[in-house]
Every structure is written in structure tokens, then in C-alpha cells.
Amino acid sequence: MSTTAEPVTAPERPFVAEVLAREDYQVIGEIVESGSRVLDLGCGEGELMAWLEQSKDCEARGVEISAKKVRVALARGLSIYQGDIDRGLADYPDGAFDYVILSQTLQETHHPREVLLEMLRVGRRAIVAFPNFGHWSARWSLLRTGRAPKTRHLPFEWYNTPNIHFVTIPDFEELLRKEGIRIERSYFLRGPRRISLRPSLFADSAVYLLRRD
């Protein structure tokens, strides 16, 4: 675990900060080793993939369910296929990738446990980033109003949210223990800053580097 609060390291190239505006992308950019084979689940328009290919010489593939986003990514020349993360990994052989990345999408999958296990089958390592539903503002919002929390990071109404599994940091770590998944590194983010003090209360999001024991 990262233990000291520190500002995010300066990007390797000026381009990075622009592309990796999302805090979790910066961490992912640091974790992934150059020349790796990477599968990005829920890759959107492929910003992270494009950066990993250009800056880290990675071989990147992506899965995205929105046809509109896939079209944008394909126009960039990226290898992306339109598909459902809940079902899309079954065809890959074991160990096909060095890293399988799931950024801010775990809570939107129908079967997060199965997705996690599949990620660690087709990838030697998995990188999972998710929004922390146990953040103090969500807790306070629920306590104060008695209504499903709406915060800066969770701006949806209960009936239209894509987030169908509410997960907190201790929830996630408990699942990892049960499944015998090892945490190689973990990062807790509050805005652009990394924090270590009571992350389950103060982190907006968490990023984990995982592998099978």
C-alpha cells in the first residue's frame, strides 16, 4: 500500500497530463510497464489505450459496449471491439495479457466477482479502479437526507444510475481475501492527490494492482 500522501508525479511527457486528466489513469499509467500487452475493459473512446500505445509502447486492445464510443476509438486506429464485459472475456485464452484494466466500471457490471476472476484468468495482473461508495460525503448524504446518496462522484438518481453494485474499500478487499487474490499495490485518491489516512472514509476512488496467488 502507498503510505504517504504525495502529489501525483510529474508526467513523463507533457502529453500525459492532458490525456490522463482522470486521476486513476495517472496511476494506471505508472503501474503499466513498457511494452506490455494490455486489455482495457470499458475503454470508452480509447484515450488510455492510445496513450499506452504511444508513450509506453504497449500493445493495447479494448472492449466497449457503446457503439458510438467504439466508432470514435476505431477511427483513431485502435483495436477495439463492441462487446459486453460480463460476457466478452470468455473467448480469450489464459494469460493472453500482461494487464487487464477495469477502470471505473466494476460497479456497472452485472457479475463483478466473475468479471474479476476472468480478468485474472486472461491477464497475469489486473488493475481495478472504482469509485468509493463509502466516502464520507455519501455516508453523510444518506444519514442526513435518508435518500440514496448523490455526490460529485455519484451524481445519478437511484433509478437512472449505471452503478448497480455499490462497493466500498473494505467490501472490495474482503472479496479479494475470499477469492485468494493478492494486492500487489493499492492507491487511494482524493481528487488528484493520493491519501493514506482512513481511505475508506476519505478516498473518492481506489486503484488496485492485483494478481493471483
Binding site: 483495436s79 471491439y81 463492441q82
Partner: peptide
Amino acid sequence: VRALRGRNCDVAYVEL
């Protein structure tokens, strides 16, 4: 596309 994925080939796909 699925067969290509099974062979770990580089394959892009979209339904337009």
C-alpha cells in the same frame, strides 16, 4: 470476432 479472440488475434469490431 470470437474465433479471432480465441487465437488472441488483433481484432476490432463494431455493429453500425
